[in-house]
Structure formats: structure tokens, C-alpha cells
Design a protein around this nucleic acid. Sequence first.
DNA 1: AATGAATGAGCGTTCATTCAT
DNA 2: GATGAATGAACGCTCATTCAT
Lengths: 186, 186, 186, 186
Amino acid sequence: MPKIVDHDQYRKELLLKSFDLFAERGYGSITMRQLAQGLGVSTGTLYHYFPSKQALFLQLVEELDRQDLLNFLAEAGNPPTLTERIETMFNFVAKNEDNFCKQVLLWVEFYQQEKAELSRNKAFHSSWDKTTQAIADYLQVPDKAIADFVLNYLYGLLMRGIFETETISYPEQATLLSKILVAYLK
Amino acid sequence: MPKIVDHDQYRKELLLKSFDLFAERGYGSITMRQLAQGLGVSTGTLYHYFPSKQALFLQLVEELDRQDLLNFLAEAGNPPTLTERIETMFNFVAKNEDNFCKQVLLWVEFYQQEKAELSRNKAFHSSWDKTTQAIADYLQVPDKAIADFVLNYLYGLLMRGIFETETISYPEQATLLSKILVAYLK
Amino acid sequence: MPKIVDHDQYRKELLLKSFDLFAERGYGSITMRQLAQGLGVSTGTLYHYFPSKQALFLQLVEELDRQDLLNFLAEAGNPPTLTERIETMFNFVAKNEDNFCKQVLLWVEFYQQEKAELSRNKAFHSSWDKTTQAIADYLQVPDKAIADFVLNYLYGLLMRGIFETETISYPEQATLLSKILVAYLK
Amino acid sequence: MPKIVDHDQYRKELLLKSFDLFAERGYGSITMRQLAQGLGVSTGTLYHYFPSKQALFLQLVEELDRQDLLNFLAEAGNPPTLTERIETMFNFVAKNEDNFCKQVLLWVEFYQQEKAELSRNKAFHSSWDKTTQAIADYLQVPDKAIADFVLNYLYGLLMRGIFETETISYPEQATLLSKILVAYLK
DNA sequence: AATGAATGAGCGTTCATTCAT
DNA sequence: GATGAATGAACGCTCATTCAT
């Protein structure tokens, strides 16, 4: 019997630890050697667990999207009013803002760089769609357009956090959005 | 100094023509040779006009941001009501959606890939800030938070156009946003 | 010492089974992992039986050369005339043409790739010489030059079977060679 | 205008110089870096002239086969008797024995290593066939089987020069072959 | 101004071999 | 004896950039 390690478990461990490394330097800029060094393994080991840099990244996307959703649902509960649900959601995003920014940045960079050969690989889009859908479900708004509205707002918020020098207050924005929506839905 | 005008004019011509090439393959994936070939010049010529790939791209960012803003202001006029201004804005974005998506994609990819050495170069952020500010001005809303709100929504719209399989209707979204805001501002 | 017999028997079994794998992909192209997988063992096991890829191959050469010779002598008998002996020989080669082609191909590839460090290892050359000598003995021609002549012809036949699109008929060639030699030796 | 060098001429120069390097270490063992160093250029330059290691080698095959044939025809003349033609041919091979051995070795090694993806590329086989055909033509023997006979003999001679410790005398073999054939054709 | 040949560091990836279990 | 995870040097190849012409 070889060394007792759960192959799959170790794979996920490497995956999760690789996120910070990707985030720090970007998908295209970090090298497999740097990744390996950062993870404390050799390049050979990296390739023992993942067939390629792209595959490693794609697995990371899937895993993180899955975990993000799980984490959110675990602590979100099911508040009675839309206002509260929006607040809960914004709180969650605010708490993990840094993580989400890094993710969006990485996903976009990767998509841009590999879009040519990504058409076959639906995993990327489907993962995003699934998350978006789950959030829409959580909000329980009667009109899908309203859910879209909130999501647009949220994704825009993330973008501005990335590009603008001046940061934006999440609680404040959540309050504003709530007020606006309540006024509209009344 | 006629020579300088020619040089500068040619430089901008190359810049503008390079946008489609960047958009098609991504900043990190396209090579200077491919760029040169696509522009119908040699790599040497490219380096005669731009000191580096990064500098070329940065100049492209600045130029396009400038032109986008100019184009918008040129055709936006100054409608009397907020509703109309928002509609005008959304129409403009809808008309140029493809372009804007490509730009956002490229800007993000570039930022992500070069952020390590971008700290010195403020051009990138300042260009984005300037555009954002100009749009906020155009809307003439009393409360800055409202302008932020609209912009967040807009940027989010762009993001979702990129990642989601299902496209989103701009006119419809504009109408919704107008209604919501009118209900709130009343 | 029963253990040693088992070990040795198993080693030869692996050796023989590895021939087809080497033949299919070439010495330089097949990996130890592929070899192990094809044999139904782990790489570790392979290294338990053979100290290195090169040693494994060298043992294969020796074993196959030995067996080829044994097989030939077993079925060749001792026909009274040179013509018959040549015919027997050509029949044998014809029957095993595919095998011999693969062997020549592999031996050449290996020799070419490792010749730098093969000077010490005489096994390779001596194995070839021994076979050649045995065949010469079998023919029982008075003049060594005639034996050389036949062997040259045979090895050339193999080479042309490898490289040329048009295959060559062994029986026909054997008949021709016989006639020619008989005419000469008369 | 760039540096004045005839791209194509320089390519052939590199090609020819690369033969000795390939011959010395083998196709599979020599690296592009070693090749570049041996040629006195950088790896980048090598790739400027040849798209890949395989393509470089294939071009070398074609070029050498072409030149060998040209050289032979240039000095072969058209002797009146078959005996003389065979002698001329064997003299030529004897004079270039070293070269031809190296070529056969390399061609076989390459073929063995790349045969999987070589099916499309007919250049390899066709080049060999062409040469073989030209030699057959030169001999002007009425019966194709006789030409085949001579060629088999020749290729076998080369093989034995490669593998056997004891070298074989070309003039002697040529004389023998002539005698044998003359006895047969009479 | 314009060319494209030249460079070489560095990339993603492979694979013979080792070794803890 | 058997396993397969781990290693890391080395491979083929790329590409931003330089520079002689």
C-alpha cells in the first residue's frame, strides 16, 4: 500500500490553498512552479493531481462556487421580509467582499484568456448560472426582473470595488437598495 | 511641425485598430507579432511607436475611454427629466454593448495580470474614475448615492452580459430602473 | 532456492510481455508508467525487477535474440543442400517477418539513442554477433564471404520491408537467391 | 530592409550543419538547445527557421536524400557494363559509408519514434522510394527483381556495418556481387 | 522610418527514478 | 514483494524586446 493519503481530499486541499496564490498574481501570470512552491510541493506532484494548469483552475472555480453557495445558505436562514433578505445578502457579500472581488477578477481574466477553447467546457458558465439562480431563489421576489435587478446591482458593486480608488460602503448601499425596492414594490 | 502630427496621428490609428485584435484574443494571449501582423506593420515598427506592450495597451485604454465619453456626450444632449437621461444612457450602452463588454473584459484581464507593477501607473484608475464621474454628472441627480446606484446597476449589467448564457434586455431594464427610481424619488 | 526461480520466471514473463509494448511505441517514446500499466503492475514493481529502463531493454534484447535463435534451430533441421537451407531460413524469416522487423527497428532506435553510454556494455553487439554467427554456421557454406552475402541480403530485405510502401515477396526472393547462388557455386 | 541574409540559403546551411549533430547523439537524444549551440545560434533563431524539431529533421531528410542522389549521379557517369555500374555504385557507397550509416540510423530511429503521427506525412517514405527507384534505374538491369536484389544487399551491408564489430570490405563485396550476378545473368 | 532576424529567460509539461508505507 | 505518491531536472517551444541594416 502506498502512503496513506486520501487522494481526493489532498486534491481539494491543494485546490483551496491555490486560490490565494492565483489571486495574488493572476491566472496568466502565476507559473506552475510558483504555484507548486507556494503549496509546498513539487511541480511533478502538482501534475500528479491535476492534468494541466487550466484543469486545476477549472476545478478551483467549481469548488469555490460550490463552497460560496453552501456558506451563504448555511448562515442566511430565511428572514421573513425582502428587506431583511437583502440585508442578509449584502452583509454576506460585505463580509466576504475581498474574496468575491478576487474571484470575479480571476474568473474574468481566465475567461478572457481561454475563451477560444472554452466553448466546449460548459462548466464555467453553468457554475455561474447556478449561483446566480440560487441567489435569485433565496430572495423570493415575485418578479424575476427584480431579482435580476438586485444581482446586477451586486455585481456592479463588486466591479467598482475593484476599479475605483474610492471604496463604497456596503451597509449604506444595502439600506438604499432596500428603501428603493420597498418604495417600488409597495 | 508637420512630422509630429503625422507620427501622432498614425500612432492613434494603430491604437484604434489594435482594439479588435486585443479583444479577439485577450491582452495576455495576443503576441506583439500577431498585433503587428494584424496591423499590417512589422514588430519593429510597433516598437517604434510604442515602448512596450503594456504601454501600448495603456494608451489604448486612455484613448478609448476618452472617445467613449466624447461619443456619449455628443449624442446624449441634455434631456430635462431623469427618466429620459437614464433612458438615453441605457440606449447608448445598449447600442455599444458589444464594445463595452470587450472593454471591460480587457481592462479586467489587464489589471489582474499587471496589478503588481501597476501601482505606480495611476493612468488606469484615473481614466476609469473620470468616466464614472462624467456619467454621474450627466445624470444630475442630487444625491451621489443615487448616481452610484445607477452605475452599479450598469456595470453589473455588463458583467452579466459577459458571463451568463441568457442575455438581458437593455430597454426593459432601463424602463424598470426608471420606474423604480421615480417611485423612490417622488 | 525456490524463491529465486519464481522471481526469475516472473522477470522473464514481464520481459516477454514488454516486447509488444516497446514495439508499438518505440523505446524512446514509451514511458515506464505505460510499460507498467501495460504489464498490469505498478512502476514500483517494474523497478523491483529491473534496475532501469535501459537494463530492462537490454535484458529483452538478450532474451529475444536467444529465443529467436532457439526457435530457428528447433525447426530448421539440417537439410542436405544449400538451396534447401536457404529456403528454410527464408521461410523462417518470412513467417516471423513482423517480429523481426519490430526487433530491428527497436534495436536500431535503442542503439542510436544510447550509443554514447553503450561502449561499456558489450552485451548488445555480442548478442547480434552471436546470432549472425549461428546463422552463418547453419548455412555451412565453405566460403565465409558467401554467408556474409546471404546475411547482407536478409538484413537488407528487412530494412526494405520497414521503409518501402511496396512489400517484397519472401518466397520469390528466396528462390531467386538460391538460383543465383547455385549458378555461382557450380 | 533587415539584415541582408538569404533566409532560404541560411536555412539550408543550418540544415546541413545540423546533420553531424543529429548523427552524433541521435534524433531523440539531442535537444534543441544543444542543436542551437552546436550551430552557433540561439534556440529562438532555430525556431525562426524551423517550426519544430520534427520539421527541421524532416527537411534534413529531404535535403540530404536529394543531395546524395545528385552527388551520385554527378560522378557515376554511365558505364557500359553492369559489372562496372555495380562497381561504381559500391565505390560510391564505400566512399560515403560513414555518411550513409549515420543517415540510415537516424532515419530508422526517427521513423520508430514518430511513426504514430507520420502516417499523414508521406515525405519520408516517398523520399526513400525515390532514391531506391533512381538507383534501380541507374543499374539498367532488365529484371526488377535483380535491382531489388542488389539493393537488399546494399542496405544489408549498411546494417551490418552498424551493428557488427567486424567491418566488411566494400570492394571485396562488390567484386563478389559482380561475379555472382554475371554468372547468373549469363 | 521601417524591417525582421536574433536573443534567451522562462513557460507548461514530462518522466525515470526513489521511497515511505 | 508491491504500491503509487513524490521528485526535479530537463524538454520543446514561445515571445517581448533589441538592433543592424
